[in-house]
């Protein structure tokens, strides 16, 4: 009796990261695949629940030569963070006072914030993005505010941070919703002329930043390009496109690849 019926098309597995050709027991998942899925889900759940080690990040920022400050959103715990996205978009009152004081160090072309968001593991990649980006922009004369570390922040909290600091652009790095194969995916969002009430259409996003996704170095190049374009043109959001990306992604070349390289 065959406990597992393998799939004869398992060579197709090399063509995609999707879970294809898993084989079956009857019509159900073989035990090895059942466990593999369970492990991926466990890692994703752990990524959501893992506490954000703020002190470690602050030390890493300092080692990279970046000055920083810690802000608080209106959220105090993980459960509230998940239930109340509106609280995660607002700063605490004491953080507002703190920013008023920091603003006096300005003016700033750019302010940056880091939050654990939905994956504190993703913040492990934050330094690899921010440190080289910081060097590039400083060499071009950008005035950059101290890096704000904001536990339990949502993307739109960048509006209030940027508004208090009077920055031209506000950049936020935060942990994205973990996928099964990507528990450590970092997202980067920026908005020009940050003000409370900006919509998602006003933001640009560079997503899936992680070694196995968009590598940090590639994210730095993209952000460097986009931030300069945003500053020069005075815009952000749907009207600001990554023209380099469009040129590289011509569907006709993909069509050709499908025909030529099955």
């Amino acid at each position: 009796m065959n406990r597992v019926t393998p799939d004869s098309w398992s060579d197709l597995r090399g063509m995609t990261a999707a879970r294809i050709a898993l084989g079956r027991s009857g019509g159900s998942l073989p035990t090895a695949e059942l466990l593999d899925f369970g492990l991926a889900h466990a890692r994703a759940r752990d990524a959501v629940k893992a506490p954000f080690d703020v002190q470690k990040l602050l030390a890493d920022l300092q080692s990279a030569g970046l000055s920083s400050l810690v802000l608080r959103s209106a959220v105090e715990n993980r459960d509230d963070y998940l239930r109340r996205p509106d609280w995660g978009r607002r700063l605490s009152e004491s953080s507002r006072q703190q920013l008023v004081a920091t603003a006096s160090l300005g003016p700033f072309d750019l302010c940056c914030a880091i939050s654990d968001g939905l994956s504190s593991r993703a913040t492990d990649h934050a330094i690899a993005v921010l440190a080289p980006l910081h060097v590039l922009l400083m060499s071009e004369g950008w005035r950059i505010a101290p890096i704000a570390v904001v536990p339990f922040g949502r993307v739109a909290i960048q509006d209030e941070i940027g508004e208090y600091l009077g920055a031209t652009l506000s950049l936020m790095l935060l942990g994205e919703r973990p996928g099964l194969g990507s528990p450590d995916s970092l997202g980067a969002y920026f908005v020009h002329h940050p003000r409370v009430g900006k919509s998602d259409a006003d933001r640009n996003c560079v997503s899936n930043i992680r070694p196995a996704g968009l590598p940090p170095a590639a994210a730095v190049a993209t952000l460097h390009y986009l931030l300069n374009a945003a500053r020069t043109r005075g815009i952000s959001g749907v009207t600001l496109k990554d023209e380099r990306l469009l040129a590289a992604r011509d569907p006709s070349t993909e069509r050709a690849r499908f025909r030529a390289n099955p």
């Binding site: 999707a18 879970r19 991926a40 996928g179």
Partner: peptide
């Protein structure tokens, strides 16, 4: 969804195997 794991939308749905649970 292959293996119930949507690698683009990053969420879990039901799989090709799952319908066979209901068929059986």
């Amino acid at each position: 969804v292959p293996g119930a794991d949507d690698i683009m939308l990053n969420y879990q749905s039901t799989s090709f195997h799952d319908i066979h649970f209901l068929r059986q």
